[in-house]
Nucleic acid binder design. Sequence first.
RNA 1: UGGGUCGGCUAGACGGUCGCGUCAGCCCGUGAGGCUGCCGAGGAACGUCCGGGCUCCGCAGAGCAGGGUGGUGGGUAACACCCACCCGGAGCAAUCCGCGAGACAGUGCAACAGAGAGUAGACCGCCACGGGAUCCGUCCCGGGGUAAGGGUGAAACGGUGGUGUAAGAGACCACCAGGGGGUCGGGUGACCGGCCCCGCUGGGUAAACCUCGCCCGGAGCAAGGUCAGACAGAGGACGUUGAAGCUGCUCGCCGAGUCCUCGGGUAGACCGCUGGAGGGCUGCAGCAAUGCAUCCCCGAGAGAGAUGGCCGUCCGAAGCCCGCACCACGGUGCGGAGGGACAGAACCCGGCGUAUCGGCCGGCCCAUUCA
Length: 112
Amino acid sequence: MLAKANRITRGEDYRATVRRGRRLTTPNAVLYVRRNDTTPTPRFGFIVSKQVGVAVVRNTVRRRLKALCAEVRGDLDPHSDIVIRALPGLDSMQWPELRSSLQQALRERAGA
RNA sequence: UGGGUCGGCUAGACGGUCGCGUCAGCCCGUGAGGCUGCCGAGGAACGUCCGGGCUCCGCAGAGCAGGGUGGUGGGUAACACCCACCCGGAGCAAUCCGCGAGACAGUGCAACAGAGAGUAGACCGCCACGGGAUCCGUCCCGGGGUAAGGGUGAAACGGUGGUGUAAGAGACCACCAGGGGGUCGGGUGACCGGCCCCGCUGGGUAAACCUCGCCCGGAGCAAGGUCAGACAGAGGACGUUGAAGCUGCUCGCCGAGUCCUCGGGUAGACCGCUGGAGGGCUGCAGCAAUGCAUCCCCGAGAGAGAUGGCCGUCCGAAGCCCGCACCACGGUGCGGAGGGACAGAACCCGGCGUAUCGGCCGGCCCAUUCA
């Protein structure tokens, strides 16, 4: 899981990352990565819209994303803001497949 | 034992591993730091449909309009909720159901069918009378009488039997059903029961307008408050002959700003924020909902949103699928696989409505068996 220090908590940072960050699209998610020299550790944010599912489903999706991000946190560039937008269908992916595909994408975009 | 009905409880368990949030304490090399400890989603947290608390609107004004509500009595902070009872309907019963005021205040509505649908109505039929025809059975025409019969319909102006009559009819009679009036008794009441009288005898719709009783000021935690910070004004309209606001309108109150266009700026922190109509045991009052008293307990409080991710073991009904055995060819038994619902707090309560794989417990009713 991710501590608060590893989370993006301001709407301004979300908007900046989504608008000006580099983008990588996978079948069920979109990654946005933006360099941020002011932070000593990578920060993550998640966008899960109501199209993905009801509140319980959205919560589960977000928690799984947090878990897989925490695993690769040390491998990434510490000066990164990363926003993951979940797309409909992400909720039905199996855990090994979800983890490998998104962790690969993260290393590709934001590797140290 | 089988079936039914009502209610309550519960919402997979254990372990491993990696973690998260509030609060408290401690540590250091003081920072987006580390360690330890406590606690950390639901019966519906959901929908946001009602009712309140709380906050602001000047103190919460009057009338109209508007909205809500609708058997009676009680409970409650309050309700559209709950309890008990009444009436009507369903059921052998337990029990369930009714958006339960008023259809002699008024206005309206009712498709199709049918002769006729609200002041009832003569299509067929029945009946006597007058006229005509006749194969002497009857038939035709005319103006009448008649609501017993046929047929239509959701519904046709009480039902059955008789008297009566040309044929008929509450025209009259008996009984039954309903209505109205009087009176007596029971009940706080809705209402119920007895007796007497009146032949008085069609109904639906008020989730159509409407009438009556009762209730309702408005906006909402993005309420509201404190602190910090940013900016840049310009033009126009109305206004002490009363603006804005309280309320949609009128009255009344108040008393100086308000609105529009263009341009510019901020959307941070803290409080509100969880101890409350709170929960539990026992006792008392009450048929009950519930109330009162003593004692005990309190354990989410985020703010891009914590309460979890992954793995393993055990347990898990039916249907479907696979294998084996039996078979009366309908299936049955055993084993395997599979199978864990609905759903996530955001100011807080009380309800209602809706979603839901299952499990456990209890009350009552009916049937059957035994004693």
